[in-house]
């Protein structure tokens, strides 16, 4: 656990802004993803602003579709988030999740229609999104 925290802090320090504000920094950065889990790409496009496929590192199961409703960097800048996703979009899966098994399980078992919020470090080059928080809520649930 301390190693993971250390790596996160190291990545945060390394990604400290020193350039133009709206330019995406294509290294390792903290992002927050929000979206709606969908059974396929068509539904994902309807429910979110854009559809991405999300796989799990080391998992051979087919990627799941998410209709993304928000993708912002650590400064809550959606312009950067949009640019990063646009650059990643041709790849399939668009993102590869990794992280604590219990957090990954929340995503893997989320039913279609569930609302997903995930925060973590995204390595742009490998498309790996190392999650540190995942919440799944179902509309209508308390």
């Amino acid at each position: 656990m301390p190693v993971r925290v250390g790596l996160l802090l190291l990545a945060l320090v390394a990604s400290w802004p020193c350039g133009a504000a709206a330019q995406p920094r294509l290294g390792v950065n903290l992002y927050t993803l929000e979206g709606i889990v969908a059974p396929d790409r068509t539904v994902a496009r309807q429910t979110g602003w854009f559809a991405i496929s999300v796989g799990i590192v080391g998992d051979r199961a087919p990627a799941r579709w998410v209709g993304v409703t928000s993708f912002v960097d650590w400064r809550q800048d959606p312009f950067v988030g949009r640019e990063v996703i646009r650059l990643l979009m041709p790849a399939d899966p668009t993102l590869l999740l990794t992280g604590p098994p219990d957090l990954l399980a929340r995503f893997q078992t989320a039913p279609p229609g569930a609302r997903l919020a995930a925060r973590g470090m995204l390595d742009f080059r490998s498309r790996v999104f190392m999650v540190s928080a995942v919440t799944v809520t179902t509309p209508g649930s308390p």
Partner: peptide, 19 residues
């Protein structure tokens, strides 16, 4: 639009409100 949220920060229902 690159970001839209309803009162309280809810992004899930914002698209249907504006798009």
């Amino acid at each position: 639009v690159v970001h839209a949220s309803l009162f309280g920060g809810n992004t899930f229902d914002a698209k249907s409100a504006v798009f």
